[in-house]
């Protein structure tokens, strides 16, 4: 009896201890593992809560960096910036944290912060160039502007630079003057071809009817159609100027959306991290 009782007690005790270690859902290590799992599931808010609730866990640079990334993914750029800026210069993640910090600043529209002495990391320099494009500050020379880029990126940035410095705008005054000379010509100048032709035909038709009414001495109709001719003529001059404004707004919009698309394709020049592989 004693032979079996002793090993039994030993095994029971051993199991008790080992299980209490294995399934303690709230141990520091298990909570970290669970938070990592949530992060990789892209459940960033819960991952951040879990990382921050475990005492001492967020002191780790890796965790602090992941918290910053989680905030960035959630679009909370201020909290992301705060977390990235807490990573010291002796950390393995320092350069990446700098890049992510500036990415957060860039995404929150705080372009001015990119013009600091800290931005020596290549991706920071690249973002800095883009900040010039989005900001209203004067651009540097083209050479300086494209210097952080290589290969195809350099060509693309050169194109963005040219479109920003010499946008293919249409003059509102020219459009209005052209429509003053020939109704509809201003619209054709702003590439609104069908509008231009219709404006020419309608104004011409109204003018012709007014002319025939004057010739036939139709007292009411001659003034009615003269008024309509003046209305269409004046409206077309105003419409041509407005069309030039719209054209210019489209030029700006296309440049902005092309730049945003390019930045998203390049993920704002930050590297791909392997936390979830």
């Amino acid at each position: 009896m004693k032979n079996i009782l002793l090993p039994f007690l030993f095994l029971t005790l051993l199991q008790g201890i080992s299980y209490s270690q294995d399934v303690n859902l709230y141990s520091k290590e298990n909570r970290k593992q669970f938070a990592d799992y949530l992060y990789c599931q892209k459940d960033y808010l819960r991952a951040v809560n879990e990382y921050e609730e475990v005492p001492g866990l967020a002191a780790s640079d890796t965790i602090r960096f992941k918290i910053g990334l989680a905030y960035l993914k959630m679009g909370d750029y201020d909290s992301a910036s705060v977390n990235f800026s807490q990573i010291g210069s002796n950390s393995f993640f320092y350069n990446d944290a700098q890049a992510e910090f500036f990415k957060s600043q860039f995404l929150s529209g705080n372009y001015g912060s990119l013009n600091t002495e800290n931005g020596n990391y290549t991706s920071v320099k690249q973002l800095k160039s883009f900040a010039y494009l989005f900001d209203y500050e004067p651009l540097p020379s083209k050479e300086i502007f494209i210097s952080p880029f290589e290969g195809n990126e350099r060509g693309k940035l050169s194109d963005f630079y040219d479109r920003k410095t010499n946008p293919p705008y249409k003059s509102e005054l020219t459009a209005a003057l052209l429509s003053t000379i020939i109704p509809g010509l201003g619209k054709i100048y702003t590439k609104e071809y069908s509008d231009g032709i219709i404006a020419f035909l309608v104004t011409g038709l109204m003018g012709y009817i007014a002319y025939t009414d004057f010739k036939a001495n139709h007292k009411f109709r001659e003034w009615l159609f003269t008024g309509l001719t003046a209305f269409f003529y004046g409206g077309n001059i105003y419409g041509s100027a407005a069309s030039a404004q719209i054209y210019n707004a489209q030029v700006n919009f296309r440049l902005s959306s092309d730049m945003k698309l390019f930045l998203e394709e390049k993920d704002y020049f930050v590297p791909d991290y392997e936390f979830c592989k």
Binding site: I4, F8, L11, T12, Q15, G16, Y19, S20, V23
Partner: peptide, 18 residues
């Protein structure tokens, strides 16, 4: 009996946590 208890401990203890 002892073996059954041993198994019970194996199964029940972690399951209770969950």
């Amino acid at each position: 009996t002892l073996i059954i208890i041993l198994f019970a401990v194996t199964i029940i203890h972690p399951q209770n946590q969950l």
